Simulated assay, not measured.
Amino acid sequence: MKTLTLVHLYPREMNIYGDTGNVLVLRRRLQWRGLPVTVTPVSVGDPLPHDTDILLGGGGQDAAQGEIGADFAGRGAQLRAMADDGVVMLAICGTFQMLGHEFVTHEGRHLAGVGVLDVVTHGQPERLIGNNWVDTPQAGRLVGYENHSGLTTLGPDAAALGRTQTGRGNNGKDGTEGAVRDNVLGTYLHGPVLAKSPRLADDLLRRAYDRAGVTSELEPIDDALPELAAKVAVGRPR
């Protein structure tokens, strides 16, 4: 069986609200099945592995995003090539925003993104905060926690990851949450989202294996505990 390479982008700077847990969930779900996996952290100045199967990036404080901004922008051409080649990506909050075309701050400053996703984000003084669940066509219901001041608008080449009923999602107006283009998924769900959304975790693994030409089915895992955690989170007040 192919050894999947999981790349954790900026693990020190972009790890707010437990986003590193998404890497741990994928690694553990592979290990439980006896499937080989390698986790490679990539920090400022480190090269992106050419054999990346799944790339994961989290959210961070504004100061942290400033620390990595130039380095992230310098990876734009490679990230776009990887997305075009079908590399699976899960981008949370700040990484989701930076994969878009640009972030316009509340003060009107334009920060260039890398253009992997057809989205634009505008900052505002109010934060969108609270437990949230999202219904998606790919992986059913996703459960997580949103806390962001950026309002994201989807362009014609990006579809919403899902629809939100209780949370405010991308912008608090159109009911969309996240974005998806081919194997690239962006979302505002922290938590970490994969800990309470096991179907999405396995969907990412299947996408990576499909890209590698591996068609074996993933053995089922008893997901009673994460499903209970999701149920509890959905029932909590925002």
Rank of each mutant, 00 (worst) to 15 (best):
P198D: 00
P198W: 00
P198N: 01
P198F: 01
P198H: 00
R199T: 08
R199E: 14
R199A: 03
R199I: 00
L200K: 03
L200N: 02
L200V: 05
L200H: 02
A201N: 03
A201S: 06
A201D: 04
A201K: 08
D202C: 07
D202Y: 09
D202R: 10
D202W: 08
D203A: 06
D203V: 00
D203W: 15
D203Y: 15
D203S: 06
D203L: 04
D203M: 01
D203Q: 13
L204H: 04
L204S: 09
L205D: 09
L205R: 05
L205N: 11
L205Y: 07
R206D: 13
R206W: 03
R206I: 08
R206L: 11
R207F: 05
R207N: 10
R207Q: 14
A208S: 13
A208C: 07
A208F: 02
Y209P: 15
Y209F: 15
Y209S: 12
Y209R: 15
D210I: 08
D210Q: 15
D210Y: 05
D210T: 14
D210G: 04
D210V: 07
R211W: 02
R211I: 04
R211H: 03
R211M: 06
A212K: 05
A212V: 00
A212F: 01
A212S: 08
G213W: 03
G213E: 05
G213R: 05
V214G: 10
T215E: 13
T215F: 08
S216E: 15
S216Y: 09
S216D: 15
E217K: 04
E217A: 14
E217N: 04
E217Q: 10
L218E: 09
L218C: 08
L218D: 06
E219C: 00
E219M: 02
P220M: 03
P220F: 03
P220T: 01
P220D: 10
P220N: 01
I221G: 00
I221Q: 08
I221D: 00
I221L: 15
I221S: 01
D222I: 06
D222R: 12
D222V: 07
D223R: 09
D223V: 14
D223F: 14
D223C: 12
D223P: 11
A224M: 06
A224L: 13
L225Y: 11
L225Q: 05
L225N: 03
L225F: 14
L225T: 10
L225P: 00
P226I: 10
P226A: 03
P226L: 13
E227S: 05
E227M: 11
E227P: 06
E227V: 05
E227H: 09
L228F: 13
L228D: 10
L228R: 13
L228S: 11
L228H: 14
L228Y: 12
L228E: 13
L228Q: 12
L228I: 03
A229V: 06
A229S: 03
A229D: 09
A229T: 02
A230G: 13
A230Y: 10
A230R: 10
A230D: 04
A230W: 07
K231H: 14
K231G: 10
V232L: 07
V232I: 15
V232K: 01
V232E: 00
V232N: 02
A233W: 10
A233K: 14
V234S: 08
V234R: 15
V234Y: 06
V234K: 14
